[in-house]
Design a protein around this nucleic acid. Structure first.
Lengths: 163, 163
DNA sequence: CAAAATTATATTGCGCGCAATATAATTTTG
DNA sequence: CAAAATTATATTGCGCGCAATATAATTTTG
């Protein structure tokens, strides 16, 4: 973009020491996997995966959303959500139905089992909180920093699309 | 574990506001996806996925590792690595060969193309750095916090295994 | 109002990530 | 040293996550 040339000298990184940006990427990658592993034994008894649990959390906040609305909140498209929602329905947690006033849309609503799961989530939340071993402030800071990072990354991607 | 009862009142979270620990989990989840999306257009021209790129980075640090050693570093098992490495070999980036002194092990080494990719990585690294939009200090703090989090999560999981 | 464009969801195919299992090589045990 | 246990890798099956495509409903355009 700029016509500067003289900032190209990060060329070689001392052996045994990754560049910081690579470290960050790997740290996010590893943390995501570690969280997944931590959730797994807590969710297995309910037959839920972590992404399915996230969808339920979203519905606990606001029930009766469309697939599209869920996708916007979670950053997922129908290619991921459609089969996931079918499994959640098969497991009895949600119900899917075409919107009568716009038959293109599918409304996703919690079943009794889906609502009941919210109470079970209290224990899960407590265990995850314990496992992170973070103070409330640390949790807040880290969350805010990650949200800011995600925002900047997505903003950059959107800009690239425009070009 | 403790016999206290009087800390069970996080039961209900105000509507429209997720508990902080859930926010953190979702923030990590979203950041990982955002990073993946950012890497994708940069790696596509080379026919590489982000996990494959991570494996290459690991080999740039120390070539000639076993599958097991790679797995320890990356937190992945052979179920993930075996097919991934086969694809990296098919793409010409690495070579796989049984260790002559212990035929159970497979040694993974970079090809010329695999080594050459390290130079291409300089540009990718710069673009990712720009996309994160972080100061060096912010990058360092965030990385360290995430590494600490991952460490605590994995330590907890290891403890559970022992029980 | 009919044709074209847009929108919402679903499907297919591919690459992880992981659990469960299989296989072959090596080490330990009796 | 032979049998049993362990170790390293590979394979199968399932659920994401995403790109590409298909389909049906709705909206826009002429």
């Amino acid at each position: 973009m700029t016509d500067k040339r003289d900032e190209a000298e990060t060329d070689d990184i001392p052996a045994g020491m990754l560049a910081l940006d690579q470290q960050l990427c790997f740290a996010v990658y590893s943390a995501a996997h570690a969280l997944n592993r931590t959730y797994k034994p807590l969710l297995d008894p309910y037959g839920l995966t972590y992404p399915q649990y996230i969808v339920l959390m979203t519905l606990w906040e606001e029930d009766g959303r469309t697939v599209k609305a869920l996708g916007m909140t979670l950053g997922l498209d129908s290619g991921t959500l459609s089969p996931l929602l079918k499994r959640l329905e098969a497991a009895g947690y949600i119900h899917r139905a075409r919107d009568r006033s716009d038959e293109r849309q599918v409304l996703v609503t919690l079943t009794g089992k889906g609502h009941a799961m919210k109470r079970e989530a209290v224990g899960i939340r407590r265990q995850i909180g314990k496992a992170t071993g973070c103070s409330l402030e640390a949790l807040q800071t880290l969350t805010a920093d990650l949200q800011a990072l995600t925002g900047r990354l997505d903003a950059g991607a959107a800009q690239d699309d425009a070009a």
